[in-house]
């Protein structure tokens, strides 16, 4: 610190505490509501202190689901979300790392053409080509399937760039030495490049897991059967009940369960998360 100004330091702390409170308030209120009974919420504004229905609400939502909007049990939706998040994260990493390997370590016709083709995916988010993409999925009979939920999303320009960038920093001598020792491209990749990429893969995995878990529009259009709903899009069914108020304590229980896994990933892997976040934008 440049100079000692106790008043400003105190003010900084106060602003930080206020900021943290503003950021955390909605989640706290959601938690309070998720421990309430339907009758507790009839009286108007939600209280600030939890009620006693915590176990009942969470058990109902996890194993039975909300009956009023005939949403499936949240445990099922969370399993779907998990499959989708893992499928997308692992799929993106695998296909990106091998295509980056080809682009950096091989010389072959159309190399740059392929590179630019991968680059183009950056400019074509699902949101801008919803209808035709839906048609492709429907024609391929991929609606209501885990393949339909994951495969179309696993092309990744950012992951490919990240690995390419990293491979370019790997010393040339490693490859020369490996070749002198008689290692072929596959052996070099598995024994030398993969172990070197471990931290990058882990950091990217954290970001991509969150990305996959939080998908909304894609599962919304690809799934029509309840049994393939993911939790993030499933909660919408409980909010948008026609001609009635949402059953808030169930909605909040579901919302909290839906944000728990990625939030835990961020909190427990904070270092990797920040690394992944910053590297992605290089």
């Amino acid at each position: 610190m440049v100079e000692n100004r106790p008043f400003l330091t105190l003010l900084s702390h106060l602003i930080m505490i206020a900021g943290v409170a503003i950021v955390a308030l909605p989640v706290w209120i959601a938690f309070v509501i998720s421990t309430m009974d339907a009758t507790d919420l009839l009286g108007g504004v939600a209280p600030l202190w939890p009620g006693d229905q915590f176990l009942e609400n969470y058990a109902t939502i996890l194993f039975q689901g909300e009956q009023a909007s005939s949403a499936p049990p949240v445990l099922l939706m969370m399993t779907n979300s998990l499959i989708m998040a893992l499928g997308i994260a692992i799929g993106k990493i695998v296909i990106s790392i091998i295509s980056a390997y080809a682009i950096v370590y091989f010389r072959f016709p159309f190399r740059m053409f392929f590179f630019w083709m991968i680059f183009m995916t950056l400019m074509l988010p699902v949101e801008v080509r919803i209808m035709p993409t839906f048609k492709v999925i429907a024609d391929l009979n991929m609606l209501n399937s885990y393949a339909g939920l994951t495969i179309p999303l696993i092309a990744s320009a950012t992951a490919t760039f990240l690995f390419r960038q990293f491979f370019l920093t790997v010393p040339e001598e490693l490859l020369e030495a490996a070749r002198i020792d008689g290692a072929g491209p596959v052996k070099f990749f598995i024994d030398i490049l993969l172990p070197l990429s471990r931290t990058n893969i882990a950091a990217l995995f954290v970001i991509l897991f969150i990305y996959g878990w939080n998908q909304y529009l894609w599962p919304l259009i690809v799934t029509t059967e309840d049994s393939y709903y993911t939790v993030v899009m499933g909660v919408q069914r409980m909010v948008a009940v026609p001609d009635a108020d949402p059953i808030w304590h169930y909605v909040m229980t579901t919302a909290l369960l839906g944000m728990l896994p990625p939030a835990l990933v961020v909190l427990f892997m904070q270092k990797l998360f920040v690394k992944g976040l910053v590297e992605q934008e290089k």
Binding site: V23, V27, W213, N214, V232, M233, V251, A263, L267
Partner: peptide, 18 residues
């Protein structure tokens, strides 16, 4: 301050809606 990144936009919407 870092964890809201993990909250899906849909769920963020639902929280503030409430």
């Amino acid at each position: 301050l870092i964890w809201p990144y993990a909250v899906a936009p849909a769920l963020a919407g639902v929280l503030w809606f409430m």
